[in-house]
Design a protein around this nucleic acid. Structure first.
Lengths: 245, 245
DNA sequence: CATTTTTTATTTGTCTGACATTTAAAAGTC
DNA sequence: GACTTTTAAATGTCAGACAAATAAAAAATG
């Protein structure tokens, strides 16, 4: 592992990149211990604080973990699905909020991906997944629920649907798409009637998944997509009318 | 922004988290300048190196950028789609390689997501997307192509297909799924005959997208999925037979 | 006066050296 | 042999310093 002394980039960034490359290319394997900070400083011909900055960069990406004490040090970290989930969710959320991604675009992406999972979920869902979906539907029927709580339950419902596909890679990919939508969904105020309509569609989806009927599930999801967009348009129209007066 | 003095976690990690929360929750907005390192050190009652480690953690996630000189400093960074792509690709790649995700699981996820894009792509693809797909097909037909180059062209073909949907969020999500598969695909040695079959399917996909025929595109993608899995099984069987002898 | 150059203050990047804290192995004790 | 103490190695943190970059302000120049 070497760094380019002519490069203008920060030394800590270069060192971090060199180590990252080694991990991605498999030259450093999971749980392998990196040299100590002092040794790395010596190896790269920089000071220890610089090495530390590089290591913190890697730690921020969950690429390494550090342990204090004798025989401690920095170890290549096994990137868990859980770590990947949360990274994915933060990234997606910021991407949507910072780039002014339209509701329609985000919504389309989310439901397109979700519909890709539905047939697999219909085939493989366990009673556990179904139970979660039904439980969330019950929660969504409770009267005094806040809009935030309703949205959270909505996310939980759709996560159960996606998890039903039994494919952790799909679940990971969808986590970002579904959860990142939540701040956008929070723009919508759910009336009693719209909640009723959503719950009815959720019930149809759950029924279809239970009956292992991929076609029906897809149809219900398509309707939910359309209905969500309608809701958004209503909210926007109402706001425009209010702002005009 | 405050940190918990009783927490056992690293100070730099706590500080990074506090700032990250402020960004995600919108209390710090894009292009806003953070206080200087000296001011942050004063504010959090820690030393400057500690603050710097925290800032490097954030820089590693593209949450901030730093600029030297007078009126320089750390600024909240607009997370670009490009930044998000590369983060997504690294994460997905490591997730697959470190957790021994099976070829079948990754393949299923990839094609499920891709099939979700196909109908949208059939509807919205521009001549540009079509041209890219056709060009990659031509490249894939070249005789002396290495397996790696064939795989790379394959990725480019499928990216054009996904980009054709005209939804940057979908493109971002798919980037991880498609690119992360590449190391796994590299396990496969493509015979002349298998390449021919793949190119034929690619041509069918491009034809369907050109004709705006979502159903045909979906069918071809389904066949490609099945064929890819067959190829993998053949490679595995051949390897098992070789190891046995 | 307008333009260019120089100065200057500010801020990040890096280094040196030191001490505190944690941790597990090694040594000592009963 | 089981328990306690010591010790060495590593990360975590701090203080202070200098280098380098950068843009605003000041000075010089035509």
């Amino acid at each position: 592992m070497k760094i380019d002394p002519k490069s203008s980039a920060d030394l800590s960034a270069q060192i971090a990149q060199a180590i990252k490359d080694a991990i991605v290319e498999g030259r450093l394997i999971v749980d392998e211990r990196l040299p100590s900070e002092a040794e790395l400083a010596d190896q790269f011909q920089v000071s220890r604080p610089t090495v530390r900055e590089a290591l913190k960069r890697l730690a921020a990406q969950s690429l390494i973990r550090t342990q204090r004490g004798a025989f401690g040090g920095a170890f290549v970290n096994r990137l868990s699905f859980e770590d990947a989930y949360s990274q994915q969710i933060t990234t997606s959320t910021l991407l949507l909020s910072m780039n002014a991604v339209s509701f329609d675009t985000a919504c389309e992406a989310r439901f397109a991906l979700e519909r890709a999972c539905a047939p697999l979920s219909a085939e493989r869902r366990t009673p556990d997944h179904l139970a979660t979906m039904r439980a969330e539907i019950v929660r969504q029927n409770q009267p005094g629920l806040t809009d935030e709580a309703f949205c959270a339950s909505d996310v939980a419902f759709h996560r159960a649907l996606v998890d039903g596909a039994g494919n952790p890679v799909l679940s990971y990919q969808l986590a970002g798409a579904v959860e990142a939508m939540q701040p956008l969904m929070n723009m919508i105020t759910f009336t009693a009637r719209s909640r009723e309509a959503i719950v009815a569609l959720h019930t149809r989806i759950a029924d279809a998944i239970e009956a292992r009927d991929a076609t029906a599930a897809d149809a219900a999801l398509a309707e939910l997509t359309a209905y969500t967009l309608t809701l958004k348009d209503d909210v926007m129209a109402a706001r425009a009318a209010r702002d005009k007066s």
